[in-house]
Amino acid sequence: MKTFNYHSAKDVKEASKLASSSSAFLAGGMTTIPSMKLGLATYKNIIDIKGIKKLSGIKVSGKAVTIGATTKHAEVANSKEIKKAIPSLAALAEGIGDPQVRNRGTIGGSIANNDPAADYPSACIALNAVIHTNSRKIDAEKFFKGMFETVLKSGEIIEAIEFQVPQKSNYQKFPNPASRYAIVGVYVAKHKNGINVAVTGAKSCVYNDKDLAKTLSSNFSAASINNVRVSSSGMNSDIHASAEYRANMVKVFAKKAVEAC
């Protein structure tokens, strides 16, 4: 691995000030460190934001669950408050990677990285999340731009993610047996003001399947999904699954999620 300078930032202002085109913020490092070891990414400066207390923690009110950016997956998975308010969100966290990833990896890191097969981006879309950064609030629908790409600017730091508590919701995924990343994952959430069907793993970026959402709005049942056609156009195709297979899995896992709602 190439050498770098390690900085432990004491607050968000300092972290943001240190940022440049050759730096990276470090939280859990579950993607950043392997990428650096493999030579896929090199940085002159690593800015550790784990020590910033304000960025960690869970707040639950009647309408919203707000999770600090450096909160670890294990903390979300084990939170009694989240299990009560949005059980599907705690279950999603429990299904990420392996226990060691869950003990280190963070929600902010997952979202900032926007891996096409990551779990959390689907939760953001399904649960109408608002991403709070050090400079603005961004609706999840506008946050995820494309493969490994978000609207975050240089020096912008995610501080917290605010999820809307749904009436009911469920997340089902077909995990890659080795990595537990989603080959296809579908997060269904029924809110007072509408239904979201967020799909991850299937395309280059998480998306809200409007056709499935529309169908479920008129008839919230697994059977109603049978008549929806999910096109394989634009779907990922790799050694794990073809585009056509993924398109079918979107339906299969949407049905499973609706049944488990």
């Binding site: 390690y6 432990s8 470090l26 490092g29 579950m30 460190i33 392997p34 070891k37 690593i46 550790d48 784990k50 294990a74 226990p99 060691q100 003990n103 280190r104």
Partner: peptide, 14 residues
């Protein structure tokens, strides 16, 4: 808590 030591910087664990 268990972590993978190949995926953590020692400096970060001060």
């Amino acid at each position: 808590r268990s972590i993978k030591s190949c995926t953590a910087f020692a400096t970060d664990l001060n």
